[in-house]
Amino acid sequence: MAILGMKGKVFHIAITGSAVLILLLAAGILYILVSEALPAFRHFGFFRFIATDAWNPSEEQYGAFAFIVGTFSTALLALAISFPLSLSVSLFSCELCKERMVASFLRSIMNFLARVPSIIYGVWGFYFLRSLFIQKGIGNYGLGILTASCVLAIMILPYTVSLLNAAFDKTPFRLKEMAYSLGANPLDVISKVSLPLVKNEIIVAYLLSLVRVMGETIIVTILIGNTYQMPTGITQSGNTMSSILINQIGAFALLKASSLIAIALLLFGLTAILNVVSKYLLRRIPV
């Protein structure tokens, strides 16, 4: 330590301090969520809170099941819609037309669109897609799980594509050249060389997209219709774990507030687990 001198010491303390700050931040987040959520879990019981679909402020009955179902149905539906699209956009720009102008243009457009704030997609969904749905007679005034999922699918597409692109870029060129020299066509190269090589990265790309779709709040709040009953079909309106937080934030009665934070904690746990799983799958931590 002595060899570093005064400046070195200050530098050392500063960077260690900021690392400690991140750890403290995470600990603080966990502490606040757990301590505020405990009353609800104590009152209803952890599993009963998760498994009941009641949101009755007048009877002080709260349960998260309807919102968990809402979150999973919107997120999985959105991923199901965007899966074939994102995979083909990525395959098109990374494998099939790699050296062409179209591909690099598509790549930079997708990289930019991934950074467009989600509220812009929400506005487009609210005014454009919703009126389209009203014309077709789908949903509750055009609102509902299906509408939200469609807009979520569009929002997540560029993000997934840029993750997939990064994955496909890692495939070694030489290996593909070898396959071509053995008489393989591009489809063989994709299915027998590229896809098996980056299998884990592709799974992670979709997992991370799932995390982002689950946590997406604004699009869902604008388009899902915000009802507290259990949704019975995909055109019904509903609520997700993130949209209920926005909807109910004004009313902070004790047990209700605690129930809301409990939902927030569940959402946090879900996204954190998926994040850790994706890190584990990659195991190529940049450290």
Binding site: A19, I22, L23, L25, A26, G28, I29, I32, L33, E36, L208, V211, R212, M214, G215, E216, T217, S242, L245, I246, I249, I261, A264, L267, F268, T271, A272, L274, N275, V276, K279, I285, P286, V287
Partner: peptide
């Protein structure tokens, strides 16, 4: 490594949760 891990967990956190935590 742990700092990096935790950083990526915060990175993946839905932004609405951060709003709630700051509020609380």
């Amino acid at each position: 490594k742990w700092v990096n891990y935790i950083n990526s967990v915060i990175y993946g956190m839905p932004s609405v949760l951060i709003g709630i935590i700051v509020y609380l």
